[in-house]
Amino acid sequence: MTSALDEFKRGLLDELPLQIGIIPFGLVYGILGVESGMSILETCLLSVILFGGASQIVFAQLVASATPAGVILASVSTINLRHLLYGLSLASYLKNLPLRWRVLLAYLLTDEAYAMSIIRFRSGQPSDYLHYHLLGTGLLLFIVWQISTITGAFLGTAVPASLQLGFAVPLSFIAVLAPVIKRRAEIFAALSAGITALILHDMVWQLWLICAAIIGIAVGWAVSYLDKDNQMEAVK
């Protein structure tokens, strides 16, 4: 049985390599935020209030194009709907924690923290302190994200666009996902979700993401059901 400190340190270490992708992503947002017309303070404040990379970038882009507030709200909500799915898949591990823990971990629940902690949660190694793993992944990400954002906001346009730092986002997710996609159901889920995203890529309010996720989940579920692959429940 691991201790709370062990889990926290493991979370930090698991999350550490992803920071190579987070730093350029944060820089990109910081630069984009200032370019969109927000002040440096507003750009950095959004990182604290929203704390969601993709939605912050969309927010900045929509502010730059003077989009109505209602559309910005709907867009950000739609993009972050996926966090509802993350929360649901983590609920069985976290729902008995004290309220202050759930509030803190909910705030820190981002794509990258979820991606690393769900692997630990499903590893089958028992621990009473699994939530400390998510605290480690989430907290490290929060700190690095804020520093990167502030740096990007101050750097402004000094970073050349030709570096394509935004490419760090898909590369990070490729590094996390590719090794864990093995079974037929997982391959079908990835292919169906990825192709759906391309087909629906120009939907309003970035709805392509939610639609693709629903299709991917449905296809993965159906194929695993047909394959009688019970591993998906056993890993819980």
């Binding site: 993709a54 996926r82 799915l85 993350y86 649901l88 898949s89 069985s92 794509d111 979820y114 991606a115 769900i118 986002v169 898909p170 997710f173 490729i174 996390v176 996902l177 864990v180 996609i181 159901a185 997982e186 889920a189 990835a190 979700a193 990825g194 192709i195 759906t196 995203a197 391309l198 890529h201 392509w208 993401l209 693709a212 996720a213 629903i214 299709i215 991917g216 989940i217 449905a218 993965g220 579920w221 695993s224 059901y225 998906m232 429940e233 890993v235 819980k236």
Partner: peptide, 18 residues
């Protein structure tokens, strides 16, 4: 619960392809 297993793959893959 079986459906929830596919959430990471189904959410992160579209972000990659897009």
């Amino acid at each position: 619960e079986r459906a929830m297993y596919f959430v990471p793959i189904a959410v992160l893959t579209p972000i990659i392809t897009h």
